[in-house]
Design a protein around this nucleic acid. Structure first.
Lengths: 197, 197
DNA sequence: GTCTATAAGCTGATAGAC
DNA sequence: GTCTATCAGCTTATAGAC
């Protein structure tokens, strides 16, 4: 079992890297097989289809993401603290698994046509619900503005945060936690100079 | 000439819609041909290759975008006014041509491999340069914060603005200009409630 | 668990009739 | 300018030897 599991994991890892770099549709099973040192036919001993590989990458990814969001929601935090925690959690996951993050962000049209899309959709609904619950709570207690639709704010911050996976590269002098802090500060306080500057 | 031009335009429009919806790699020349009511072989009377269609869509799109950005830069505006104008111009273009916008935002890995990528890259450099010049000017004159890297702020606002094309749908009660105003307000003033609320 | 060999179908693109 | 017919190559996936 152990060697089979590790071979499966190797395939998932290599596939995710290729899918992220050149897109799922443009990646062939021959490329994946070559990357792990086998021929394409042998891949089908480990996975029933190419789509099954995509599905497992996305499903595993969303499970990790949801576990992290749920943990944030158990903490005793203010609305602002929660929003900052969601940003930090998201960016840490993007840093830890950039390939899966890119696949999930860039290949929704491919994912939507997978046979097991239902489970993905359920997870996506919970992810979105988490953000909206935090934004709604802050709006209700006066922390956040009421003149901007929560749905609009959610989409702005979601896209800015998740697409950081396209450009952010871990760097000793600019850590992911620093990026998260900057991100939270821009979205909550704004980029305009403070009055006391 | 006129009928040939309009046929070319039909093909470009149908291709852009398909490319935006299902991705370039997953769209076949047979689908494009069927959409405009011809057989796939006939397409090659109008374009030498599928990639030539992609290239023309992206090149035309960037030409329109650059013309709009250049016009903004001729206006007499403050740094904040310029940034707002860039956001408005971008969102209006995304509204007017959502398919090309989505292709440019989602298919960079495909575009990067096109033979005529040089021209695209040159335009992309000018686009980024415009945003960074406006941000830099506002930073120098004290309008914008100095404790956050301009490059970080640029990427956050770029991704939030351009990915609106994925979710924004024109609506009488929420116009693109209103979205632009909300976007500018969130990024410059922040989503935290104002003190005088 | 991997390889060989191959099926069955789709892909972008071409040549020539009309 | 479009259609017919087709090519050569590539795709995912399968069956059976080792």
């Amino acid at each position: 079992m152990t060697s089979q599991e590790s071979r499966r994991t190797e395939i998932l890892r290599a596939s995710a890297a290729l899918f992220a770099r050149q897109g799922v549709a443009s990646t062939t099973v021959r490329q994946i097989a070559a990357e792990v040192g086998m021929l394409s036919g042998s891949l089908f001993h480990h996975f029933p289809s190419k789509d099954a590989i995509v599905n497992e990458i996305v499903t595993d990814y969303l499970a990790v993401l949801l576990r992290s969001y749920r943990e944030v929601m158990t903490r005793d935090l203010s609305a602002r603290g929660r929003l900052e925690a969601l940003i930090t959690a998201s960016l840490r996951i993007a840093e830890a698994d950039p390939h899966s993050t890119m696949i999930y962000q860039n290949e929704m049209s491919y994912i939507r046509d997978l046979p097991q899309y239902e489970a993905v959709r359920d997870a996506a609904v919970e992810v979105q619900g988490t953000w909206l619950a935090v934004i709604g709570a802050g709006r209700d207690d006066g922390t956040f503005r009421k003149d901007i639709e929560p749905g609009v704010f959610y989409r702005l911050i979601r896209d800015a945060v998740w697409l950081a996976v396209r450009w952010y590269r871990p760097d000793g002098s600019y850590t992911v936690d620093r990026l998260a802090a900057d991100c939270a500060s821009v979205f909550l306080d704004g980029y305009a100079a403070f009055d006391d500057d």
